[in-house]
């Protein structure tokens, strides 16, 4: 493998621009190192290190947004008291990612680009209306996270672009919840993941492990927006069928996932929505 060690974001973007062929950025390495080239024989790959780019590390608060850096880790967010107060789902999600050893190294941007349909960071960000800030030598581009994924591991990021920030607008939330059904509490991959928020911008319902990408659920959001009165969790199944397309795999079946999603959503929302 070839390794490039830029010292500034500018240098990193120059490397990403294709001068050295296709390059893979590496941040905390918690996804990339699991299949590290020594084992895959990908010795011809070129990596661009981001870990040294301290300018991308800090998170920032502005009057109307929390801005995560391109290298902000889960632990950086867990430690930030204001994040816990204002964006509790971010902290709840971060605490679900592996354990401290992973949280200390894993980054939000890495979670977004790794694009696992079962990721924990992405649903929380999406439920808060996060915007991905991409940069390349050609300039800056902003893509709302809920429009970022175009298919399984496919996304609106060109190979020369780095995520340099993730902007999360500050809104007043009247309801927010994060739920993950896995086989055990800690360090497990989600069978069904949910992040739900209600703000002056309306409802956002985000499902993980229920489709080739993490995605919003417009049919369910419509039900909630209309104030539909439901009698039990089965009433959610038609909307769930429209919004997601789960699969059978080693962790679970499609049928089980749909039912679990209906039950969890129903239980989480019944009080707020005045359902039985």
């Amino acid at each position: 493998m070839k390794l490039l060690l830029p010292e500034t974001v500018r240098d990193a973007l120059a490397h990403m621009a294709g001068r050295d062929g296709v390059t893979t950025p590496i941040a905390g390495g918690t996804d990339l190192l699991v299949h590290w080239p020594v084992r895959l024989g990908e010795r011809d790959r070129t990596y661009v290190d981001l870990w040294q780019l301290q300018e991308l590390k800090p998170l920032r608060w502005t009057a109307d947004a929390l801005i995560l850096g391109g290298l902000t880790t889960y632990w950086d967010v867990i430690r930030d008291r204001r994040a816990g107060d204002e964006f509790p789902l971010l902290v709840a999600a971060a605490r679900q990612v592996g354990a401290i050893q992973i949280q200390a190294r894993g980054t939000w941007a890495g979670n977004i680009v790794n694009a696992s349909p079962a990721a924990d960071g992405v649903p929380a960000l999406m439920a808060y209306g996060a915007v991905v800030v991409l940069e390349s030598q050609r300039g800056t581009e902003e893509v709302p996270l809920d429009g970022f994924y175009t298919g399984y591991k496919d996304m609106r990021r060109r190979p020369d672009q780095l995520i340099v920030a993730v902007r999360i607008p500050r809104r007043r939330y009247s309801y927010q919840t994060f739920a993950k059904v896995g086989s055990r509490r800690a360090q497990s991959i989600a069978k069904v993941g949910l992040a739900v928020t209600q703000s002056d911008d309306g409802w956002r319902v985000v499902a993980a492990s229920m489709a080739p990408t993490i995605r919003r659920c417009p049919a369910i959001e419509r039900l909630l927006q209309q104030g539909a009165v439901l009698r039990d969790s089965d009433d959610l199944l038609p909307a769930i069928a429209r919004d997601v397309s789960p699969i059978d795999d080693v962790r679970s079946t499609a049928e089980y996932r749909r039912r679990v999603m209906a039950r969890v959503l129903y239980d989480e929302l019944r009080e707020t929505c005045g359902w039985r």
Partner: peptide, 11 residues
Amino acid sequence: PVNSCLVPTYQ
């Protein structure tokens, strides 16, 4: 605390 199996030494 980090897992040293997931840290490339150059980092």
